[in-house]
Amino acid sequence: MSKFDFAAMPDANGYFGEYGGQIIPPELKEIMDEIDGAYEEIRQTPEFQEELDSLFADYVGRPSPVYHASRLSAQLGGAQIYLKREDLNHTGAHKINHCLGEALLAKYMGKTKVIAETGAGQHGVALATACALVGIPCEIHMGQVDIEKEHPNVTKMKILGCKLVAVTRGTATLKDAVDSAFEEYLKDPVNYIYAIGSVVGPHPFPKMVRDFQSIIGTEAREQFMTTHGKLPNYITACVGGGSNAMGAFTAFLDDNDVSLVGVEPAGKGLDTKDHSATLTLGKPSELHGMKCYVLETEDGEPMPVHSIASGLDYPGVGPQHSYLKDLGRVEYDSVTDEECLNAFMTLSRVEGIIPALESSHAVAWAMRKAPELPSDQMILVNLSGRGDKDADYVADKLGL
């Protein structure tokens, strides 16, 4: 039995403790409540469940395997490192899990266009893929900085038929892409649906995205019990908005013996302004229709943030993560750009697995932690995506 109370997360108003909610205009609240009602109704139907389960198995390729990184573990000494291979999913990351759910929901609700933001491009590719599959037009907003950095994903989105909108305002990164996409959505919220790419935004999106992503932890739990007869000692995942981490953590929240660790981007260092360590250095505030931890300037505006990983440079974080931090159920640590790059190259050359820069943050934490633990302990890393999109960038940065 858990020592924590996870009774109803979120409650009827979309709050996880004091975080979350719908901090939006009344007319938009009505639309969000309609989406919530449709989601709660549709997800209970056998037709929806059967279609989603079938797509997970035959389209995505689930269940994703759990791989023992034995050579990496031996090189480090200490605990054994395992990888939940979300990088092997169709489209190359965990994002396809909730994108299929959101695209099916849009189809069932009769929406005429799906709108979204993307940072590293994995959410954009996955959503463009899902929309092509169900036959709904798709529009993706992406910061110009990320477009230049993540060219392979940009090309894939165009091939898949989505309309790509380059966002040049502000820092031209993820937060600005969110703002731009939301403005487009507000032009016709009755016929459009905004498919948020993480466990962020107004209720019901933090709940919906978590629910679709929870298959990661549900599978991992069963896989560990089948193979080892016990659960891992640690589960770790990178945290920007936090969807892959919530997907990995949810099935284990009641297991007191399983330590859960979210890893944020320390960027160029926590003592600089070039980081995205929201839960580490931020404070409770409001952003993008929700209450959560936020990195803010002295004027109370969202801080310009930095991470080598485009999918993690967000000044906010999911409200459930904010709640779990305050509750003490999840530990939130951070990893620098330099540590991330080292983990990226080490996993590539020791195990032949090229991880996404986002996922490399969690790999780096596991590499740091493993030598401190006995060899009979196990760390499960949610390898949330593959590094195809980052290969050219890393090669150029390291002069390979």
Score class of each variant (00 low, 15 high):
S310L: 04
G311W: 10
L312G: 09
D313N: 11
Y314P: 00
Y314V: 00
G318S: 04
G318C: 08
G318P: 01
P319A: 09
Q320S: 11
H321K: 03
H321M: 12
S322L: 08
Y323L: 07
Y323N: 08
Y323C: 12
L324S: 07
L324K: 09
K325N: 11
K325F: 00
K325C: 02
D326E: 15
D326P: 04
L327H: 13
L327V: 04
L327R: 13
L327M: 13
G328K: 01
G328T: 10
G328E: 15
G328M: 13
G328A: 14
E331Q: 15
E331M: 10
Y332H: 12
Y332S: 12
D333Y: 11
D333Q: 14
D333P: 03
D333F: 10
S334T: 08
V335N: 07
T336M: 10
T336W: 00
T336P: 06
D337C: 11
D337I: 06
E338F: 00
E338D: 13
E338K: 14
E339G: 03
C340S: 08
N342M: 08
N342V: 12
F344T: 01
F344N: 03
F344L: 09
M345V: 11
M345L: 14
T346D: 07
T346I: 12
L347D: 01
L347I: 07
L347A: 02
L347Q: 00
S348G: 09
S348R: 13
G352T: 02
G352H: 00
G352Q: 05
G352F: 03
I353C: 09
I354P: 05
A356C: 12
L357P: 04
L357Y: 09
L357G: 03
E358H: 06
E358L: 01
S359P: 11
S359Y: 05
S359G: 05
S360N: 02
S360W: 07
S360D: 01
S360H: 03
H361R: 07
H361T: 10
H361L: 15
H361A: 03
V363E: 08
W365D: 13
A366Q: 06
M367P: 00
M367D: 05
M367W: 00
M367V: 00
K369Y: 01
A370W: 00
A370E: 05
A370S: 13
P371D: 06
P371K: 04
E372S: 14
E372W: 14
E372R: 00
E372Q: 14
E372N: 07
L373K: 03
L373I: 06
P374V: 12
P374E: 15
S375A: 15
D376H: 14
D376Y: 13
D376N: 13
Q377E: 15
Q377W: 14
M378K: 13
M378D: 15
I379M: 06
V381S: 04
V381T: 02
V381A: 11
N382E: 12
L383A: 09
S384E: 11
S384R: 09
G385R: 02
G385L: 15
R386K: 08
R386C: 15
R386P: 07
